[in-house]
Structures are given as structure tokens and as C-alpha cells.
Design a protein around this nucleic acid. Sequence first.
DNA 1: GTGAAAGCGCTAACAC
DNA 2: GTGTTAGCGCTTTCAC
Lengths: 353, 353
Amino acid sequence: MAGFSFRLSILSEGRYDAQMVTIHDIARETGVSPNTVARILGGRRGRPYNEGKVLKAARRLGYVRNLQASNLRSGRSGLIGLLVPDIRNPQHTEFFQLLQDAANPMGFQILLFSSGGRMRQELHALQRMEQSRVDGLILNASEGETDEGCDEILQRFLTRKTPVVLAGRPERTIRADEIVIDNHAGMRNMVRYLAKTGRTKIAFVCGDRQSLATRERHEACLATVKKLKLEARTEWSQFGEYTPESGAQQTARLLQMNPRPDAIVAGNDLLAAGALRVLLDAGVMVPDDVAVTGFDDIPLASLVSPRLTTLRQPREKIAREVMELLQERITTRSVDAPKKLHYEPELVVRQSA
Amino acid sequence: MAGFSFRLSILSEGRYDAQMVTIHDIARETGVSPNTVARILGGRRGRPYNEGKVLKAARRLGYVRNLQASNLRSGRSGLIGLLVPDIRNPQHTEFFQLLQDAANPMGFQILLFSSGGRMRQELHALQRMEQSRVDGLILNASEGETDEGCDEILQRFLTRKTPVVLAGRPERTIRADEIVIDNHAGMRNMVRYLAKTGRTKIAFVCGDRQSLATRERHEACLATVKKLKLEARTEWSQFGEYTPESGAQQTARLLQMNPRPDAIVAGNDLLAAGALRVLLDAGVMVPDDVAVTGFDDIPLASLVSPRLTTLRQPREKIAREVMELLQERITTRSVDAPKKLHYEPELVVRQSA
DNA sequence: GTGAAAGCGCTAACAC
DNA sequence: GTGTTAGCGCTTTCAC
């Protein structure tokens, strides 16, 4: 007992305030050294004789390892930061769940930040990740311009050999791993499919103008329209943000036009759902009068009526491969030779087109 | 310089491996003590003379505070644990976002765990929260039975005066704060509304039998049906889980029955969306032939066709008040006199009923 | 307001 | 395999 303070301190009210049990308490209790306790509780072996004693004492005293101390000393954190523009977009929610399921067995926890597309929030999130010493991080596209301060922080991560994975962000100064969705191939297939099924006047309901996904998807559509020599009008390209409300607004504008488009290609499923909403409310038949297509294939796509024809992102594969890459980089402490993980969206034909 | 190791260590490849800058580096650089550096960087004041020097040096050297060390010493973590059964349910996603928006300004971060309703995952999540020394935690209903180990951990949290908020969990041995949704009042209003609009044969599409929400909502429906002397049949009560797929399955079973119900009260919006799906596919008119209602009022409720009549949970209010309660408890270190936060769902009439 | 010293709880490094 | 020692980076305590 000598040299150790009491683990129970008496408060003024006369109640007891239970402190956390430490490896020293268990060491004292069992007569072995703190080191041995730590080793056994850390899963490495000791003398069976000691193992029994230690495990039993730990259980009896209600020992709970202090990750803060553990991580401080070992220089890890067991945390993977995930920054998304809006977790309320099911696409991101699904990705979080898949990432968590892949990360947990590897001993990692996901620290999620939903920035709401706000620049300041995004910067705060990165600062917090840095202060938390995340072992790796995944950055989803901000749905707008990106702050300069962000790049500075990202660069520091890489200098410290903390792996960074960028998704849907324009290539910039920093050389990090990237998730690359082949928006061009996806949209080309989509527009071709629409043309093949007789659509000639294709309109585009897009997310925010600044985002890379928006630009790539929109440009691919225009290029394909041009290549197929379909009708093209600048006012058939509408922009907003990746929400059902925006999709509804944009579609309402399209409905005013003359000639009216016979197909609406939306930048993602949320936009498409909003478009569907407005069309049905206006008595426009989908897909008879107007075809509607989405992007992502979130669960919602199968719940709206008619079911959405869309482009499926291989989320499971992405989540798995990203975590594998991160683990690899974290264990080898190498962030050199940035990798690009390529994925092609798959056309899923349902009812809306 | 004496007594301090170099912050740059040369690797075998001849490159530099930048270590993190510490308050000692800044202290050395500016000639003040580490204590003064910490105080100034911690936001408390110092001599303007020193403040300038320290802040500038910190910026120049790229200092990033180490939260692990800070938290280890101060006994806080700045983390609020949030455990939900399934983050893919938009109800939980929305709640996370609102909670994050309320927590961040208070200096807290949300550590999210999505258990998938699996008992083992839930236990793991609680263990991890305990090891991470979260300052408080919010437990959403597991959608099934709860493990004994969980209660043991929760009890330890409370003993240590770490506040715990339970939501939608049956009251048990532990005395923690609770979020109480008045399922009874909500469902009573819903059934009355259906009766008033001429429905007489009301069926119930529910989540899993074990969950408190399911039991309360179902019982409230049955009680109201009985009170209003409406037709009642045991086979009109179906159970499953809180997913669209389950809602679809349960509804398919109801469609086989004779007599067929003229209203379907679903346990949440996801179930209702699945029900809608099956009804429309079967050519049943909603709400003309069969009325459908949901619970939660997630964004999806306004996107399906017809729009869902549902019961809205005051999520914003709940998130705000829960964080206020947590902050209060964390600062006063008092978990005595558990509070019950009561909320009543609001009937939102749209098109489906 | 500032500096010196101690220590949060753990793991790493090294003898044995 | 085990014990000893040191120290991760910070905050706390206490003189001054």
C-alpha cells in the first residue's frame, strides 16, 4: 500500500467518488509489476500462473484500460477521421456504416464529422482531427470551394506520414491517395441508355457548380449528348445543391420551359427524388412523359415511385479497399507513391427511365 | 537547447521525419516556461508581450495541441458517445447531425457507434466508450434484448459520475436520465384520426417484438382500437424489424388476409415506406383503398408517393435539451436525481392517410 | 502572471 | 517472462 494513494477519496458530502482502477492497482493487488500487468492485459502472454491472477484481479476490480494514456505513450490513436459534407445524405451514411464495419475488426474507430458543406466547419473538423492525432483520414468532397487552411493541415498530415484519402476532390497541391469514381463512364452509359430508349431532349439537374462531382457528371452528359447529336440547350442544365428540395426547385424551372425536356438526369438520387416529387405533383407521368435518373443507388432509390433508374456506386468495395489501404499505410508508415482507387458506377435500370 | 532532443530525426533514407511540435519547443524558442506557453495557447491571458511571442512561434512552428496528453492530465476527453442501433435509419442520422451541431459549440465531439442491433457490437461499443473515457453518453434503444454486460458497464459510468442518457430503453436497474417519447399519446391520436376519417379495420406493421418502442406503440394502438370499438384481429398485428424490407414483407402478408385491413399503422417511416411500396406494386390505392401511416417524420416521408402521414418527433428540441442536460451534469459532476425528458409526437397529416 | 516540479496511466527500452 | 526506469505532452499545484 505504501507509495500509493487511496483509490477512494472522500467527498465533503461523505460519499465516495470511485476513481478508475489502474495497472498499478492490479500490480499491487497481485504482487507482480505494472509492466507484467500491462503485458497480460494487452493480450500478450505471461506465465499462466500470473495470467490467472492478473485477469481475475482486473475483472474483480473493474479495470478499464485508459486509451488516452495508452495512445499518448504509443503514438497511435486508433482513430480514423471521416469528413463528409452532409451525413444526412444516405450515400454518406451507408459509407460510414460500411467503413465502421471494416475498421472495427482492425482495431480502429471512426471519428465522424459532418460539415454541412460549411467551410468553417470543415476547417474545424480537420483541426480537431489533427489535435486528436487520428491515424488516418478520409475526406469526402466538400460541396463547394475548399479553404486554403485545409490544404495546409492536410499537408502537415502527410509530412507526418499520416495517410490521407481524398474522395471526389479536385486534385490539388497535396499528393494523397484518392478514390476516383468514373463519373464520365457512368454518365455516358446513362445518356446512351436514355437515347437508346428514345429520349432526345435530356435535361440536367445538378448539385452545386463548384463540386468536382457536379462538373464531371455534367460535362460527361453534355459530351455524350453532343456525340449522339441530341438536342442541347443551355437552360436544360440547372444547378443547386445535392438535396431533394433543390432537385424539386430545379425541376419546377424545367417544367416551365418550351420545349420541355423528355428526360431528367439528376446528379444524385436525392435530386432525382425531388424531381420525381415535382413531376408527379404536376401530373407529369414518369417515365412515360419524362424519364428521371439518379446517381449513387441509395436505399431511397427503391422506395420512391416509380423506382429510380440510377448508377450504383460499389460502396462495399470502396469501404473495404480504403480501409485496407489505410491499414497498410499506417503499419508501414509510408505515404509515398499515392494510389488512385478507381471505381466504375454500374447502371441499374428500374422504372423511372 | 540543452536538455531537449532535436525535433527532426534523420531517417535511413536521408529524409526528415517531422515530429510534432510541443509546448517545450515553443518555450525554448521564446524563452518562457512551458507553463506560460500552455496557458497562453489555452486561451487564458498572459503578458501581452509574451502572448505575441508565443502565438507567433506556435504558428510558425506549426504547433498542434495534443488532446490525448491534455485529456489524460485533465481527466476529460471532450467526447460524447452516441450509440444507435442503425445509423442508416434517417431518424438516427438526423439526430446525430443535430447533436453534433449542439455539441461542437460546447467543445464536445460526438463519437458515433452504429451497432446494427447486434448485441456483441453494442457491448463492444460501450467498452470502447469506457476505454475512451467519454464525458457522457447517449444510448438509443437497442432493437432487441439487451445484454447483461451492458448494464454492468453503464452502472460503472454512473458510479464514476459520467452522465448516461437512455432513449427508448425499458427502465431497468440503472438510474440514468431518460428521453421519453410519449408513444401512447402519439399512437392514440393517430388511431383516432384514422377512425375519424372512416377507417374501421386497422392493421399494425411493427418493428421487432422486443423493443420498447414497438411494444408501447403497438399496445397504444390496440388500446385505442378497443376503446373506439373498432374491429380487431390478432393477425392484423405483424412484427419484424425497423426496415423498409420488413415493412414490405409484413404488408404482403396483410394483403393475403380476408377481410383485408383498410389502414396500416406502421411502427416507423421506414416500415411505412416499405408498406407503400408493396401496396402500390399490388395495385392497391393509397389512401383510397388502404391508408398508411408512419412514425418519426424523416425526410423520406415527404419523398414517397403519396406523402406519408406520420408522427413527428421534435428532434431539434430533443438534441438541444439532451446536450444541455449533459453539459450541466458534466460540469457539476452530478448524476443524481435522474431526469426524464418528455416529448410528445405531433400528428402530421399528409396524403397517405 | 510566471516558473519549477510533479504526475495523469500507460508503453518502450533495457537489464536480468 | 519479468521488473525497473524513463518518458509520451500536457495540466496541476504551489511558490514567488
